[in-house]
């Protein structure tokens, strides 16, 4: 990019000197940061391993071939579980995020303190990866789909609430005013003037989130929270590479199909 930038110069003065200097400054900062990041990472890398990686890769791939088709019999249940974790987790998150979003939106929050609390829930839920939630929940609830479902739910609350409260803040306020003028109560105003305006967003985000969650729930098994990830980590640990390739194939198909469904449904709604 910087090479292209320098081309502007001769053609015409696009920027003032100050702007050019500022840009130069930011590019320099960026390059320095990139260099430092690279240095720190390469210091901790055994380049010997990296050099042998291509050989290693072809070795693993050859061991993966052909996929162990017969292993599919044992994968139907984990796939079913994976999808259920995603779906139920999404539904739980949708339910919980509704009140959270209304508390977090500037125009519907009952009190600034409540808003701060709701925003705190939102950011906490979003910052912690579903795998970490799963780690914690497996410890508390024991391994299995329950921990996975709740983990997906907890992680999704933040994503939902954020998009939903942004939608609530962007509604057309005149429609609310009109309903308010009829003598409607606060709750009635929400149901009649705000909900219809944000409902499409809500459903759209739900379907979108479901797709993300199917992806996310394929790996929860790595920490014991149910789904196909459990088989994946088991097969990797026992070096059963033909099973691994079969599992990867199934994950890939699941992800592609859920993405396709999500796109179709969103298309039908909008």
């Amino acid at each position: 990019m910087p090479i292209i930038e320098t081309k502007d110069g001769p053609l015409w003065k696009r920027r003032t000197l100050k702007q050019s200097l500022a840009r130069l400054f930011w590019w320099t900062v960026g390059l320095i940061v990139a260099a430092i990041a690279w240095k720190l990472i390469s210091d901790k890398t055994h380049w010997y391993f990296v050099q042998s990686a291509p050989k290693e890769a072809s070795d693993i791939v050859s061991r993966m071939m052909p996929p162990d088709w017969s292993y599919m019999d044992k994968l139907w249940l984990p796939v079913w579980e994976t999808i259920n974790i995603a779906t139920l987790g999404t539904l739980i998150a949708m339910l919980i995020s509704i009140p959270v979003a209304f508390m977090a939106a500037r125009n519907t929050t009952p009190h600034p303190l409540v808003r701060a609390f709701a925003l705190f829930i939102t950011v906490t839920s979003r910052s912690v990866n579903s795998l970490i939630w799963a780690l914690i929940l497996v410890f508390i609830l024991g391994p299995g789909v329950l921990a996975g479902t709740i983990a997906i739910g907890l992680r999704s609350i933040g994503g939902f609430s954020k998009l939903l409260y942004e939608a609530i803040e962007e509604i057309n306020p005149v429609q609310v005013e009109a309903i308010e003028a009829t003598g409607a109560s606060r709750l009635q105003q929400i149901v009649y003037a705000i909900v219809p305006q944000v409902l499409p967003t809500f459903v759209g985000v739900g379907v979108f989130r479901w797709d993300i969650n199917v992806r996310g729930s394929t790996i929860l098994g790595l920490v014991g929270a149910g789904g196909i990830g459990l088989q994946l980590s088991g097969s990797i640990n026992t070096l059963a590479w033909t099973q691994v390739s079969m599992i990867l194939l199934v994950i890939l198909l699941t992800v592609i199909i859920s993405e396709w469904i999500s796109a179709k449904v969103r298309g039908a709604i909008i």
Binding site: V174, Q175, A178, I179, T182, Y192, A193, P196, Q197
Partner: peptide
């Protein structure tokens, strides 16, 4: 009763 400039109907109802 109030009547508005931009009608202010709830469009999705």
């Amino acid at each position: 009763g109030m009547i508005f400039q931009e009608y202010a109907l709830v469009e999705r109802l």
